[in-house]
């Protein structure tokens, strides 16, 4: 019985160690990078507690002390990822002070939605937009029927539009109550994967740069250089932009990944999730994929 338990312990320990250590490597391959996606909040907590429980078991088994130490280290590494995205960590982008909070002309509200191209519940998004009344709406995975539906209902409320319908799940639509200028639709890295760069004029007259991106997802059998390059390219552009920058959309990445940390170093932009908690956007698995798909959203010179 004890021998059986030891083998189970070795197997679980190996899985925990591999899935903790491999995403730290620089290997840009979906099977490796994708492991980061499994680190969503609850799964991380489960990992943490599983490691703690296994550590306790290991200490009771003959020669289990080493396994216990390894598992304890894994738990600490997992905790290290978690804690940055909780309220126990110092916020990276700060809340607005009273004067800034009162100055509504300096505010901007944005709604970002990945509609999932095959989803045809146009009315759900239209109703949500009408309830929330954001200044800017960004929808990704939109094809022509999606844009037609949004435009037929919301054109009167949103005067400025950037429409990039695509049948390959990489379509983008931006609609805004605030004036948009310098709008560009580019395919900067991979043909067929567009992104949007524009300027938004706030009520105060000040402008902010808005990047809307939806790079390729990490998949098991493919490298992630396309996605990583797209995200990095936007980061480098934002770093050299004279305007304060907002990067949003669906980055097909998670807040704690190596790619996102590199993006932040390249851009100098701030992550509002740090010190505030997770915001998981992905609900369930699709086509065998599973995990959280989060929107990275960062700005300089901003209050929150």
């Amino acid at each position: 019985m004890i021998v059986y338990l030891q083998w189970v312990l070795i197997g679980l320990t190996s899985v925990l160690v591999a899935s903790t250590v491999l995403p730290l490597s620089g290997v840009r391959f979906g099977a490796i990078r994708g492991l980061s996606f499994f680190r969503l909040q609850f799964f991380r907590l489960q990992f943490f507690w599983l490691a703690v429980v296994l550590a306790a078991i290991a200490l009771l088994l003959p020669q289990g002390r080493w396994a216990g130490l390894v598992l304890a280290a894994v738990a600490l590494v997992q905790l290290g990822y978690i804690v940055k995205f909780t309220r126990f960590w110092r916020r990276q982008s700060l809340g607005a002070d009273r004067a800034l909070a009162a100055d509504k002309r300096s505010h901007i509200s944005l709604l970002a939605a990945n509609v999932k191209q095959s989803n045809r519940d146009y009315d759900a998004l239209i109703a949500l937009v009408r309830r929330q009344r954001p200044d800017v709406v960004m929808a990704v995975e939109v094809d022509q029927p999606w844009i037609d539906a949004l435009e037929s209902e919301l054109a009167g409320e949103y005067p400025d539009w950037i429409k990039v319908p695509k049948d390959n799940t990489y379509g983008i639509c931006v609609m805004s109550r605030l004036p948009l200028s310098e709008a560009e639709v580019r395919e900067v890295v991979t043909q067929g994967v567009p992104s949007v760069r524009t300027a938004v004029t706030l009520g105060s007259g000040a402008q902010v740069r808005l990047y809307v991106v939806h790079p390729e997802p990490p998949v098991f059998h493919h490298d992630t250089k396309g996605r990583d390059s797209e995200i990095a390219h936007v980061g480098i552009e934002a770093a050299h932009d004279a305007l304060s920058a907002i990067v949003t959309g669906d980055l097909n990445d998670v807040a704690w990944s190596r790619t996102t940390r590199s993006f932040q170093r390249l851009s100098g932009l701030l992550d509002p999730r740090v010190g505030r908690g997770f915001s998981i956007r992905f609900m369930r698995s699709t086509g065998g994929r599973d995990g959280p798909w989060t929107t990275c959203f960062t700005i300089r010179n901003s209050g929150w």
Binding site: L110, K116, A124, L128, R281, W304
Partner: peptide
């Protein structure tokens, strides 16, 4: 909204 993603709302100043 019927998608496999949750929409997100951000308010900035």
């Amino acid at each position: 909204i019927g998608s496999d993603h949750f929409p997100m709302m951000f308010r900035l100043a």
